[in-house]
Design a protein around this nucleic acid. Structure first.
Lengths: 241, 241
DNA sequence: ACAAAAGTGTTTGTGTTACACCCATGC
DNA sequence: GCATGGGTGTAACACAAACACTTTTGT
């Protein structure tokens, strides 16, 4: 079970992806749980081939975990402090994986590579959560969406990486008009507002929000959406660039 | 002449610094000229020791080139496209350095390291140009300040790196109140305005600019500055956090 | 007194926030 | 008709741009 061929990758450089999704008024992040015993979660990540750009690498990793293409993706920060290799977790991994001499040795090889000191480049992605079919990697036991307020305990500084990704998302949301990447093809104004309220964790005034969004001139008004509710039917909108 | 000991550094990861200075209404960048024949300029850069954080590395490089400490420094982007190793320049370097068998071989070693494909993390720094005493590195023939509009031909994507650094500077200038790092200890309001006009390459209205800056509540008004000119003497200001 | 440049005040415009009202829908 | 939630209009406010005026300085 050779997971990683050291030679073809750039050494000590990793890519970590913060994949944002949105569902039921909750902002979520796609996080795999590692196969190693002991309940470790880690951001979807990987390495860069020698003849591959880092943006390409990030996109390859992203597509392999989501099963879809044409995703909004952007670099946001490089993490390179010492102490990122988190010796405590390594020791715990070593310890907890004792007692399986054959498999153990092979894992040891992987562990040596994985647990070296890495500089990691963080990318964040915005996806329509309904289109994604989360894909486990070899190193994963499972993979799932976690509410950004209730993340599982993650290795190293991965929690900080998510935090920095959220900061960047908030900074870029209005500037780059990227919120719509988190919504389905068509949506109501209320859904846009709830998305904004979720991301910024604060309320917006209904009428002013509508005016602000429509003044951007990036939404196309479609038919009304009849829900069967006893009230005026809201318009559906579609994002157009 | 062993310039670089490969082993102690993280492989294929470099740090590049865009050091901004300001003088005579011009925004300048500190750029060394390489010793290799053929007129090559490259951003001040270096590598990260195995037991050193990337921020630390950037600061070490920065301080070694400017001769001063406590400089404003910030990471702004990671550059990792393929093709960054710029084969044309390597070949030209090789070719132009022929005919010196002894020294050539040693340089060859350095060249092999330096010309590999690198991922580079960009940092930008803001300095008081009068405090800096530019320091050559072993690999430099000379080092000097260049107007950002008249940069010499630089290797690889270093021109793009400067461009991205300037974009980031413009984005952060108001947000983080960092412009004053480019000015001396005390300065007049006109000097601040001219600095802003230089950075954004557009004029600002004098009275509105003054109001905007003073409303930030980060400047301390000192004595007037008597220049001997036949007009009202301007106040001097000092930045206080 | 005058020119030059600094300092400050006032008006205008624009965009954001807050409040109010009207409209469609199903019971 | 009525409750419910969606759509739109208007007034109040804050901020930024434009305009005007006063003050200081050396000749």
């Amino acid at each position: 079970m050779q997971i990683i061929d050291k030679e073809e990758y750039i050494q000590q450089l990793s890519i970590d992806c913060v994949i944002f999704g949105y569902q039921n008024n909750h902002l979520k992040v796609l996080v795999p749980k590692l196969v190693f015993e002991g309940d470790f979660w880690a951001l979807p990540g990987g390495f860069t081939y020698q003849h591959e750009g880092i943006d390409q690498a990030a996109r390859r990793i992203l597509e392999s975990r989501t099963g879809i293409r044409d995703i909004y993706l952007e670099q946001f920060w490089a993490f390179g402090d010492t102490g990122r290799s988190n010796q405590k977790i390594i020791e715990k991994l070593m310890e907890m994986n004792e007692g399986k001499p054959e498999e153990q040795q092979l894992r040891q090889q992987d562990l040596e590579w994985v647990t070296r000191r890495f500089i990691s480049i963080g990318y964040y992605a915005l996806v329509d959560i309904n289109k994604v079919v989360p894909q486990k990697a070899d190193i994963d036991e499972s993979i799932g969406w976690y509410d950004i307020g209730q993340l599982p305990p993650m290795i190293m500084d991965h929690k900080d990486i998510v935090s920095k990704a959220l900061d960047t998302l908030r900074l870029n949301l209005d500037e780059k008009l990227i919120a719509f990447n988190l919504l389905p093809e068509t949506f109501t104004m209320k859904e846009v507002q709830e998305l904004y309220e979720t991301i910024y964790d604060k309320p917006f005034a209904r009428n002013n929000f509508q005016k602000k969004i429509l003044d951007l001139n990036v939404l196309e008004r479609l038919d009304k959406k009849y829900t069967g509710a006893a009230n005026k039917a809201p318009y559906l909108y579609r994002f157009r660039e």
